Amino acid sequence: MDLLDVWPVFRLRLRTPRLELRPVRDADLPGLAQAALDGVHDAERTPFGIPWTDAPREELLPNLARFVWRERAGVAPEEWNLLFAVLEDGRPIGVQDLRATNFAALRTVSSGSWLTRSRQGLGLGTEMRAALLLFAFDHLGATVAESEAYDWNSPSLAVSMKLGYRENGVTRRSPKAGVVEDEVRLRLEASAFRRPAWELEVDGVDEARPFLLVE
């Protein structure tokens, strides 16, 4: 018996032409922490609902570990958040997550992500989101995918529109004291997904199905 027998979700692997996505393991945490410390966005404005990247190093590092451990422990059929480490040439460069509540009935997923700044602007954000959508629609049986981004976050919105999402309303958020943002909601039906030209390679989905209530 090994770790994969104890937690079969770790068997999941998504491979694109340039990237590998796999559920975050403890061994990935130092690389992900460094990717976050290297910078994710301009210091003046956070694209996140919770400004976690604003924390000083001594807080950011353990907070990242706590978040990963908490989300991993919460994966259950009724509600789950799969945190995928995004690897380029074996090196962690960001995180792509996939979330669902009552998936068996709603067949709806949502997602969020971050990518270290040095790897932005190269199409990798689109590639990792496309991988997640291919996995959700073709292997889990999702019919709808949702996302969101602040109205000023044009790179994130551009990725969504490129893949076929459509605007689905606006919500006001306050990520930190004294700051109010308009958040654009986005919705994508499986039939409207603009599929990439490449094929996704997937391993371990059968072992993960019982944890995600996928029939």
Results as ranks from 00 to 15, higher is better:
Leu29Pro: 09
Glu201Asn: 03
Gly74Asp: 12
Trp198Asn: 11
Arg187Phe: 03
Leu3Lys: 06
Asn63Glu: 11
Gly49Gln: 01
Asp182Arg: 15
Gly31Ala: 10
Leu106Val: 07
Arg185Met: 06
Leu140Cys: 15
Arg166Tyr: 03
Asp54Asn: 06
Gly141Phe: 06
Leu200Gly: 09
Phe67Lys: 06
Arg209Thr: 06
Ala55Thr: 03
Glu201Ser: 12
Ala73Glu: 14
Pro196Lys: 08
Pro56Ser: 02
Pro155Phe: 07
Ser156Gln: 00
Glu181Gln: 15
Ala55Trp: 12
Ala130Ile: 00
Pro196Tyr: 08
Ala33Met: 11
Phe193Glu: 06
Phe48Ala: 02
Ala145Ser: 15
Phe84Met: 11
Leu186Ser: 05
Val86Glu: 00
Ala55Asp: 07
Glu181Tyr: 14
Lys176Met: 10
Thr171His: 15
Arg45Ala: 14
Leu61Gln: 09
Leu188Gln: 06
Phe135Gly: 04
Glu183Asn: 14
Ser156Met: 04
Glu58Met: 04
Ser156Thr: 03
Arg22Gly: 15
Ala55Val: 02
Arg194Lys: 13
Trp198Leu: 10
Gly169Phe: 03
Leu133Ile: 07
Pro30Leu: 03
Glu79Val: 10
Leu133Arg: 03
Pro30Trp: 05
Glu127Ala: 04
Gly125Phe: 05
Trp198Thr: 13
Ala190Ser: 14
Ala208Tyr: 04
Arg129Pro: 02
Val159Met: 01
Leu133Ser: 07
Phe211Gln: 06
Ser110Thr: 05
Arg45Gly: 05
Gly121Phe: 07
Asp38Phe: 13
Arg129Leu: 11
Leu133Tyr: 01
Asn168Thr: 06
Val75Cys: 02
Leu83Asn: 04
Glu201Pro: 00
Asn102Lys: 09
Trp52Arg: 08
Arg99Pro: 01
Val109Ile: 15
Leu19Pro: 07
Asp42Asn: 12
Pro92His: 00
Arg166Cys: 07
Asp89Ala: 15
Arg187Tyr: 02
Thr116Ser: 15
